Simulated assay, not measured.
Amino acid sequence: MQTKTTADVGDYMKVFACTAVIMQSVLAFGLQTSPNPRVQTGIGITYNLVKYTAPAFIFGILFTTVRTHERAHLGDYRQYLTQQLHSLFIPTFWWSLVYLLGLPSLQQVSHYHNLGSFIWQFINGNAAPHLWYNTMMLQFILLMPFFWWLSRWAVQSPRHLWGTLILTIVGYGGWLAFYDQQVFNGPHHWYLLDRLFVSFLIYGIFGALAWKKRRTLETFLQRYWPLLVGLFAVTFIWTNLELQAFGQPVRLANAIYYKPSTTLYALAVIGLIATLAWANIRHHSRWLPVMHGLATYAYRAYLANVFWLQLLWQTFGHRLSQTHPVWAIVSCYGLTWLLSFASAYGLHVGWSALKRWA
Rank of each mutant, 00 (worst) to 15 (best):
K212N: 06
W308S: 11
W357R: 15
R214S: 03
A274K: 10
Y133R: 00
V326T: 15
F63E: 07
W95S: 11
T68Y: 02
Q248K: 06
L209Q: 00
P226M: 10
V269S: 05
I119W: 12
I166M: 12
Q244A: 15
R78Q: 14
I237M: 13
R159N: 06
L106E: 09
Q139M: 04
Q24E: 14
F307L: 12
L138N: 14
Y345C: 09
G173F: 12
L165E: 08
G44Y: 02
F89N: 12
Q181Y: 01
Q222M: 07
L150K: 05
S110P: 02
S331D: 09
T64C: 00
P289R: 04
T3F: 04
G207C: 06
W225Q: 09
T296K: 10
G60T: 06
I166V: 15
I273H: 07
V26T: 11
Y258Q: 15
L309N: 03
Q108Y: 14
L276M: 13
I270A: 00
T3V: 04
I119F: 14
P260Q: 11
Q79F: 05
Q182V: 03
Q24N: 11
W357Y: 15
N280G: 14
D8P: 01
L272C: 00
L347K: 00
S261K: 03
I166F: 05
S343W: 08
W278Q: 04
T323M: 06
T65R: 14
W175I: 00
A54M: 13
R78S: 12
A28G: 11
S261A: 15
H160I: 02
A54H: 10
S96Q: 07
A342K: 13
T296Y: 03
L101A: 15
W357D: 13
Y299S: 08
N134S: 14
G350H: 12
G346W: 13
G317P: 05
P158K: 08
L264T: 08
F140P: 04
E70Y: 09
Y172V: 01
W132E: 05
F197C: 05
K259N: 11
V250N: 08
K51T: 05
R78V: 13
F307W: 05
A301K: 01
A301D: 05
L85I: 00
Q40M: 10
L338A: 15
I45A: 12
V39Y: 01
T275S: 08
T65Q: 04
W148T: 09
L103Y: 07
I123N: 06
G174Q: 10
P325T: 01
V229K: 07
G171I: 05
F16N: 01
S151Y: 11
L228F: 15
V326Q: 08
L192C: 03
F146P: 03
V98M: 11
A127E: 06
R319E: 15
L227W: 14
I237P: 02
Q2Y: 04
L196N: 14
L150S: 13
R214A: 12
F29N: 00
R159L: 06
W225K: 01
L228C: 14
M13D: 06
W211S: 03
F59V: 07
R215N: 14
H111S: 13
R195M: 15
P129I: 01
V290P: 10
A72Q: 04
A245D: 02
Q108R: 08
Y99R: 09
P37E: 15
I202Q: 05
A353F: 09
Q310Y: 13
Y52V: 13
L228Q: 06
G102Q: 14
N280T: 11
L196W: 14
L338W: 03
W149E: 07
T41D: 12
